[in-house]
Computed example of a mutant assay.
Amino acid sequence: MMGLSAPSNRVREQVLALIKSGEWAAQGKLPTERALADRFDVGRRHVRQALDALENEGLVWRKQGKGTFLGQPADPMGDLAAKITGETNALEVMEARLCIEPELAALCAHRITDDELARLRHLMQRQFEAGDAQATELWDGAFHRLIAQCARNRPLLTAFALLDKIRSNATWVSIRAKARDGASLAVTHSEHLAIVDAIALGHADAARQAMRDHLDTRFKALQGEIAALASAEDRKFFAADVDT
């Protein structure tokens, strides 16, 4: 990654690999900087720089005096999301995303900074280059999360965080992974590029439409996967209206 020394970038890649492996998923917290430095046999400065990079990418967050944690800070909507997960389905969540994320993209087009735009392009490329389903999910989530954050609208961000928490359900993640293949990933990259280009130009209407087009593509792919693979019981859980 640009801006990191070779040792710091190596630590970043090692930490990223461990995040993807799920080693720290249960506790949601990374070891201390000292422990990571000992594990990777580097100075703490390199660990700190690597964690800075991962934090900028939206993959970890830190709280002074508490440590470094996976993902994003807990949102008060987390408990609500856990309750709603059992009362909704994947297609309803996609419908809600189609209502919210195009507007987030439009606001982002007016409010994103140059540094944030560079990060967004980096996340887009990482998602395209991801070598497995878990990495694809990781980078795709970070890409959409950064757009939501850069919209700088707290109520909309809270709504997005609620949906993001719901869609992190492991079974739903596996269904989304099955709906992706080489061709669909190429389409996703093209659609992500259209979103980023519109945001970069400050064209809110174009960013809104590009996000809507992208989510509509994923919505249709999800419908097809559920209809093709889900059992009758799964279909009831994931989508009450798979034939619509």
Rank of each mutant, 00 (worst) to 15 (best):
D75R: 12
T244P: 01
T217K: 13
L163M: 09
Q125H: 09
P7K: 05
G202C: 08
A53Q: 08
R154E: 13
L107G: 02
S184V: 13
T88M: 08
A130I: 02
I166M: 10
L222P: 02
S184Y: 14
G71Q: 07
E92L: 12
A26Q: 14
A133E: 15
K236L: 12
E87I: 10
A240Q: 08
W61T: 06
D75N: 12
M124P: 02
G3S: 13
R34K: 09
A74E: 15
R154F: 08
I147W: 03
T88V: 07
A179L: 01
R180L: 07
I147K: 06
V173K: 13
D197F: 04
N169Q: 12
S174T: 14
L162P: 01
R62A: 13
H122A: 08
Q149K: 07
A105L: 02
S5W: 05
A221I: 04
E55D: 11
L36W: 02
F40Q: 05
G224M: 07
A135P: 01
L215T: 00
D115I: 14
A50E: 03
L222F: 02
A228F: 04
Q72W: 13
N169L: 08
L201A: 06
A227K: 14
A204T: 04
Q14F: 05
M1R: 11
L163D: 01
D234E: 15
L146G: 05
D52Q: 06
V47M: 05
G43V: 05
E129H: 06
S8P: 02
L193W: 09
A17Y: 03
H144E: 04
K236Y: 10
F160P: 01
I112H: 01
G182K: 10
G141F: 00
A198E: 05
V93F: 07
N9Q: 12
A130L: 03
L59G: 02
R44N: 06
L193V: 10
A53R: 09
S21W: 03
P76A: 11
A135M: 09
T113Q: 02
S231Q: 07
R212K: 06
A118M: 09
R167S: 11
A35G: 07
S190M: 07
H203N: 14
R97P: 04
D213Q: 13
Q209K: 07
A96N: 05
L80G: 11
E87Y: 14
F40T: 01
Q49M: 10
A161H: 14
V15M: 03
Q27T: 14
D197M: 10
